[in-house]
Amino acid sequence: MATKAKILIVDDDADFAKSTKMILLADGYEVVIASDGKEGLRKIQEEKPDLVILDIMMESIFEGFSLVTSVRSDPQLAAFKNIPILMVSSVRSDTGSRFSFEDEEDMGSLSEPDDYLDKPFKPKELLDRVAELLARRRAS
C-alpha cells in the first residue's frame, strides 16, 4: 500500500502511542512518535509531518496546549504554522470548563487544536477524523 501521509504522534504514554500507531499503520500512514512536547517540536521540524496527534496532558497539564501555541505562533516554526493538529486526552470531559473549547473566557489565552478526540477512541473514529483533517488541509 502506498504511504498516504506522515503523522506525528506526541504522547508520553508509550502504550497509547503504540496502539494509535498500529491503527494508523494498518491504514497505510507513515507514523513518527515523540514522547514529550520538546521532542514533538523537534520532530515537527525534522520529519515535516502532514498532521500531528497530540496529547493534552503530559509532564504538565498544559504541555499539549503550549506545543500548539508554539507551532501556531513561533516565527521560527512559521513553515509549520498551518499543520493540522488533532488533540487527544482522557481528561477533557472531567476537567470542567478548563478544557471545554466552547468557553471563550477560559480558552482565551490557549491556542485551539483543529479537532479533538476523547481517549480511548474507536479505530474508525480516529481514521475518519485524520482523513477529514488531511482532506481539509489539502483543499485549503
Binding site: 502504550d15 497509547f16 496502539s19
Partner: peptide, 19 residues
C-alpha cells in the same frame, strides 16, 4: 483514566483485527 484508556485502546486495536 490514562492507564485505562491505554489498555482500552489496545483492546480496540485487537478487536478491530489490526493485530
Amino acid at each position: 483514566r490514562s492507564p485505562l484508556a491505554a489498555i482500552l485502546q489496545y483492546f480496540e486495536v485487537l478487536l478491530g483485527g489490526i493485530g
